[in-house]
Write a protein that binds this DNA or RNA. Structure first.
Length: 930
RNA sequence: GCGGAUGUGGCGGAAUUGGUAGACGCGCCAGACUUAGGAUCUGGUGCCUUCGGGCGUGUGGGUUCGAGUCCCUCCAUCCGCACCA
């Protein structure tokens, strides 16, 4: 009887569900192992073959760890808030909850087919009030905390208020927005509203007027990581900069800790590097430049304070707050024209015209605080409002952008750094700037002759002495904008009293998402929640109408899995003390700057407030590679309904057309199916290869509907079964590399599964396993496999484990093994990869319990020990023949045996060897003169 | 431009501290069984060859008895960031 995967897989999936086989217990004396997948957004398209790749890998680890005796937490849930369901709602009026629920159901069915060992009792859905209650709760906690730079951690706002009452604002070292300092007396004299307004400068979740990424097409603002090259990541709509009042999270306060902790994480170097770049730490100095005939000063951030004497002009970003104030009457018209032009230029245009130099003079002058020189203040969009202070001191001699600008507008260029024996050429003759990272200072007063590094330190010291600047660190990482003008998201647990925001009492949570008549913004441009009836507190105060962004729900879901049914707390302290952190986290690298930063921030905050025992949430991170599509092509003769096979296409003038991969097997086109594919091909003619077959061309491309190369896992599972599907996805290649999906190879894996099944059955298909003692050969291959598989799973090198299983089964087939003492351990060994067939065989072997908790076989060195080794013998590095010698043979004897071998004579000629290298258990290399 | 990664048969990919390059699978070739083969099984399969052997891990060089692996040079591809002061 052939292996009937359909019946077997269904049977065991039902068994696992019924027996709750994979339910994880919080009370356990066993060591814990937490293996997590990034939970999916349930899109309408369902799972494609790329999704399960990571899930299969994590499932193998989860199952392996159970066999190893760990208490495994392996949950799954859904990142259920998101734009597609809402866009669909706007178009059709269908409530996003309905769409989402439908999609989740479909995802669940697809996942269940693959035989994952998820503990579904712990499922979380971000749109479930029982879950988002804790998202809202965390938001309130963030609102009620500020960041103390001295202690380098979050502290309650109540402590800050106490401090203000006693000392005013001086002496508080906080991550905060700038404000005028105040005394304790002033603080106490202020009315409630004024105090609240001040506290807003400190809160970790705060409301402020900020420059945001506004996406008109989506009708909402977006966080920085949701914008790619001036377009929204979802949908690809243009994004513009706009000033709006928005909620933000003060993630920048954690920049240094987010950076430092990276060093201790077992993540891929590339992801860590992406995060380092995103955080973008740079050391330098803040310098204040007084403005001539003004009481204002311009603050500038520079990494090169040593070049202060080479700074000849200043530049403000067009959005800089002092622009209008510093513009003189004569320049007003021109400046306004420029600012308007710069503002209306889309982000896209700006990026495309990087090389274009543009700018305008304000008419004002800044004063160099160290030498009193006057520096014209310009406005130019090569200075970004979003980085540093939005203003720079320009050093054209040593910065290429400043140089180009200075050349264009005829501004002076002063060289201040030179190499040791450099011949000085007038800067007027320079063709490009000299971007000197090191060298010796010149034209620079008190730092002349110093090395750059020393000059930087000396300058900072001087700036601090004169109180015109200070050494500081700047980060590229901006606070995360947390408001969305959308319907399908978590409502903010915030209401407004006299325009001042207050958090709801915790007992009032969750604040449930209200129903609305339409999912669009109101006529007045308010968010959809403004349409809700009675969107007020019990006392009649209006509730916040923004909702939270997609990353709100995904920032802390991994904690909720630890204790998902707790309705008193986010999660209990005890649960957290047991599960601690995620041991292995799998997901795509597209979350490098979004989710993985926000989640780490969320975790740091919870840690600071004593909620958790581990500072970092994800100990080890693996990014599974993307699965690319493999497209097939047919070649149509131009102007005719005639198609030429691949190898003859050059004889005609042809046009390459994508053909549905389902009509092609091993690059051979099913001509009849092709004719029926589209009416226009009904009467198509074919010029085939000489063997009568039509061969298609192929190419690796992105998987997409329009390329007809999308592989749906359901079809494959129907045809080959889940075990084969799992095995094949793992067999494709290393988990982290991107790889093309090519179904051709799945046949081989399917053959292997059947071959494995046959080991347990006789020619007539009857289950037949013998109780005989195994021989050395059988034990050897078993133990080699135990060793290899264990090592490979630890390394997450799943493709090579599959190879080893194949080698093992091939060998056991050759040995005609059907002995229980070999096959039973092999079954356990194989169960993490192919759980269904192994459960079936395990039960046929007479076991009553699931194989999920069977003890993983122990590797015994003695079975793979060899007494002899077949030495490859090389002459001058080229392998010539092999010789089998005992392993305990001495080097001298090996050398002798090799040289005396009759085959050696040919390579030695008549001369004695110059040298013989013998590496025991490796190789023999004989060096002979040429 | 900066940063990161990767280059091995027709294809996906193996290869411990430097030690038999191409495991395993696909594909292909031949054979067996078959009414049939897009089923199954067996054998072969890096390239060239005058059948002695020669050449082979992106390029060129180096270290070494020995290099896919280490060092230097260049090239290509992919990814990330990008007027970051």
């Amino acid at each position: 009887m052939e292996y009937n995967f359909r019946a077997v897989e269904k049977k065991w999936q039902a068994y696992w569900a019924k027996n709750k086989t994979f339910k994880a217990e919080n009370n356990s004396s066993r060591p814990k192992y937490y293996v997590l997948d990034m939970f999916p957004y349930p899109s309408g398209a369902g799972l494609h073959v790329g999704h399960p790749l990571g899930y299969i890998a994590s499932d193998i680890v989860a199952r392996y760890k159970r066999n190893e005796g760990y208490n495994v937490l392996h949950p799954m849930g859904f990142d259920a808030y998101g734009l597609p369901a809402e866009q669909y709602a706007i178009q059709t009026g269908t409530h996003p909850a309905v769409t989402t629920e439908k999609n989740i159901k479909r995802y669940r069915e697809q996942l269940d087919q693959i035989g994952f060992s998820f503990d579904w009792e712990r499922e979380v859905q971000t749109c479930d009030p029982k879950y988002y209650k804790w998202t809202q709760w965390t938001f309130i906690r963030l609102f009620e905390h500020w960041f103390d730079k001295t202690q380098n951690k979050a502290r309650p706002v109540s402590e800050l208020i106490k401090f203000f009452n006693e000392f005013g604002s001086s002496g508080v070292s906080a991550a905060n927005d700038e404000h005028e300092p105040f005394t304790d007396e002033e603080w106490k004299s202020w009315p409630e509203e004024r105090q609240q307004e001040m506290l807003m400068n400190y809160r970790l979740a705060y409301l402020s007027e900020t420059m945001v990424n506004w996406c008109p097409a989506l009708g909402t603002v977006l966080a920085n990581d949701e914008v790619k090259e001036g377009f929204s990541e979802r949908g690809g709509h243009p994004v513009e900069r706009k000033k709006m009042k928005q909620w933000s999270l003060r993630i920048s306060a954690y920049a240094q800790r987010l950076l430092d902790n990276l060093d201790h994480l077992n993540w891929s170097e590339s992801i860590k590097e992406i995060q380092r770049n995103w955080i973008g730490r740079s050391e330098g100095a803040a310098v204040y430049f007084p403005v001539k005939d003004h009481d204002k000063a311009i603050e500038v951030f520079t990494t090169r304070p040593d070049t202060l004497f080479g700074s000849t002009y200043m530049v403000l970003a067009p959005e800089h707050e002092l622009v209008s104030e510093l513009t003189t009457e004569e320049q007003k018209a021109e400046v306004e024209k420029y600012v308007t032009w710069a503002k209306n230029r889309s982000e896209r245009d700006r990026l495309a015209e990087v090389k274009e130099v543009s700018g305008v003079f304000t008419g004002s002058y800044g004063i160099n605080p160290l030498n009193g020189e006057e520096m014209p203040i310009w406005i130019a969009d090569y200075v970004l409002s979003g980085y540093g202070t939005g203003a720079i001191m320009a050093v054209p001699a040593h910065d290429s952008r400043d140089f180009a600008f200075a050349k264009n507008f005829n501004l002076p260029i002063i060289q201040v750094v030179k190499q040791k024996n450099e011949e000085i050429i007038s800067t007027e003759d320079w063709k490009e700037s000299y971007d000197a990272m090191d060298g010796i200072m010149m034209n620079s007063d008190f730092i002349n002759g110093l090395e750059v590094a020393d000059a930087i330190q000396a300058t900072i010291k001087k700036l601090e002495e004169k109180e015109v600047g200070y050494g500081t660190v700047n980060y590229r990482l901006r606070d995360a904008i947390f408001s969305r003008q959308r319907y399908w998201g978590e409502p903010f647990p915030i209401y407004y009293k006299n325009g001042v925001p207050y958090p709801l009492e915790v007992e009032k949570l969750p604040l449930e998402l209200p129903d609305v008549d339409e999912y669009k913004p109101t006529e007045k441009g308010e968010p959809p929640l403004a349409r809700a009836k009675n969107w007020f507190t019990e006392d009649g105060y209006p509730l916040e109408t923004n909702t939270m962004p997609g990353f709100a729900g995904s920032s802390g879901y991994y904690y909720r899995y630890m204790d998902p049914h707790n309705d008193k707390e986010y999660f209990s302290k005890l649960a957290n003390q047991y599960w601690r952190d995620v041991d292995l986290y799998l997901g795509g690298d597209e979350h490098a700057t979004g989710h993985l930063i926000y989640a780490r921030f969320w975790a740091l905050f919870l840690f600071d407030t004593g909620m958790t025992v581990e500072e970092e949430p994800f100990k080890r991170l693996i990014n599974q590679g993307k699965i690319q599509g493999r497209s097939n092509f047919v070649y149509r003769v131009v102007g005719e309904n005639k198609f030429v096979s691949y190898h003859k296409r050059k004889e005609y003038k042809t046009q390459r057309i994508h053909v549905d991969i389902n009509l092609v097997h091993n690059d051979i086109l099913d001509i009849d199916a092709f004719r029926n594919w589209m009416p226009e091909y009904k009467n198509a003619e074919f010029i085939t290869e000489d063997n009568g077959k039509y061969v298609c061309g192929w190419e690796i491309e992105k998987m997409s509907k329009s390329k007809y190369n999308v592989q749906n896992p359901d079809d494959l599972i129907k045809e080959y079964g889940a075990d084969t599907f799992r095995l094949y996805e793992m067999f494709l290649g290393p988990i982290e590399s991107h790889k093309p999906w090519d179904t051709q190879g799945i046949e081989g894996v399917s053959r292997f599964i059947r071959k494995f099944w046959r080991l347990f059955h006789d020619e007539n298909g009857n289950f037949h396993v013998a109780d005989e003692k195994p021989n050395n050969k059988e034990l050897k291959v078993l133990h080699q496999t135990i060793k290899k598989v264990k090592e490979d799973i630890d390394k997450l090198s799943f493709n090579t484990s599959v190879s080893q299983y194949m080698i093992c089964v091939n060998e056991l087939t050759d040995l005609k093994t059907n002995k229980k003492e070999i096959l039973e351990p092999l079954t356990i060994l194989f169960s993490p990869f192919a759980p269904h067939i192994t459960e079936e065989l395990w039960s046929l072997l007479g076991n009553d319990e699931s194989i999920a908790f069977a003890e993983f076989p122990e590797f015994k060195e003695e079975y793979i020990k060899e007494s002899s080794f077949e030495y490859p013998v090389s002459f001058n590095g080229k392998m010539r023949f092999k010789i089998k010698l005992p392993l305990d043979m001495s080097k001298d004897k090996i050398e002798k045996a090799v040289l005396e071998d009759e085959r050696s004579a040919k390579y030695l000629g008549n001369q004695p060897p110059q040298k013989v290298i013998v590496v025991p258990k490796r190789i023999v290399n004989v060096v002979v003169a040429k």
